[in-house]
Computed example of a mutant assay.
Amino acid sequence: MVEQEASDGKPLKLRARDPQDMDVLAALLQDALVPLGDMKYLPEEKRFVLVANRFLWHGDPAEDERPAAPRPLPEGEDAAFDDADQPPFERVNSGLCFDKVARVRYRGLKPGGDDDILNLLTITSDARSVTLIFAGEAAVRLEVEAIRCHLEDLGQPWPTRWRPHHDADESGEQP
């Protein structure tokens, strides 16, 4: 069951206990940026954790007509924000923790690539597994005893000029 939703600028704090709850978390985490080095499986604790730089979608992304990238800047001008041109988007760091994880399988991730930044496209799940699907055909599959997931925003949102966009060839296959 989804426990709490953010409102009035309060940090998001949710838990998921079934595939329907995971669908809610998948929507919230769509287009999150996840440093590979910020994902960790803790087998002794049966826990998988990560920190994601979560894009704050407001409304339906398909109906959002704002540009996916900032307007071109005149030569010599930097991308700093000014009072007259406020950035229209926000991101926030969020912690994601899965408990009761029996096994983790990785696909399409480079060993030792801890500096790599992954783009989380979606999360799929059933009663015994959760799959984090990233751009570039990368995925992490968690085999779980039960879905026990917690998502919590860490800190306050910050402005960004960049709205995520997707190439038509990004895969949504599971490992």
Results as ranks from 00 to 15, higher is better:
156 Q>T: 06
172 G>M: 13
49 V>I: 11
113 G>P: 00
85 D>K: 07
51 V>H: 04
37 G>F: 11
175 P>A: 05
94 S>G: 03
117 I>P: 01
83 D>A: 14
4 Q>T: 12
88 P>Q: 14
171 S>H: 03
36 L>R: 12
45 E>A: 14
22 M>T: 12
146 A>G: 02
4 Q>Y: 09
53 N>Q: 13
62 A>I: 10
110 K>V: 15
65 E>S: 11
68 A>Q: 05
12 L>I: 01
26 A>K: 02
144 V>R: 02
54 R>D: 05
81 F>Q: 15
95 G>N: 00
10 K>C: 07
133 I>D: 02
5 E>M: 15
83 D>V: 09
27 A>K: 15
150 H>V: 08
49 V>F: 00
116 D>W: 04
92 V>F: 08
83 D>S: 11
83 D>C: 04
115 D>C: 00
82 D>E: 14
65 E>P: 04
154 L>W: 05
34 V>L: 06
103 R>T: 07
159 P>D: 09
159 P>F: 09
131 T>W: 03
49 V>T: 15
25 L>T: 01
83 D>M: 11
44 E>N: 13
116 D>C: 04
157 P>W: 02
109 L>T: 09
43 P>F: 10
49 V>N: 00
95 G>A: 07
40 K>I: 09
39 M>A: 06
85 D>T: 10
94 S>M: 01
48 F>I: 01
138 A>C: 12
69 A>T: 08
119 N>I: 12
171 S>D: 11
101 V>C: 10
159 P>Q: 10
31 D>N: 11
118 L>C: 07
173 E>C: 06
121 L>A: 10
161 R>S: 15
88 P>N: 08
86 Q>D: 07
145 E>Q: 14
55 F>N: 01
121 L>W: 03
136 G>P: 10
156 Q>R: 09
33 L>K: 10
122 T>L: 15
48 F>R: 00
138 A>Y: 04
36 L>Y: 07
162 W>G: 02
71 R>W: 09
149 C>L: 01
78 D>R: 10
150 H>N: 03
98 F>V: 01
108 G>W: 04
174 Q>V: 14
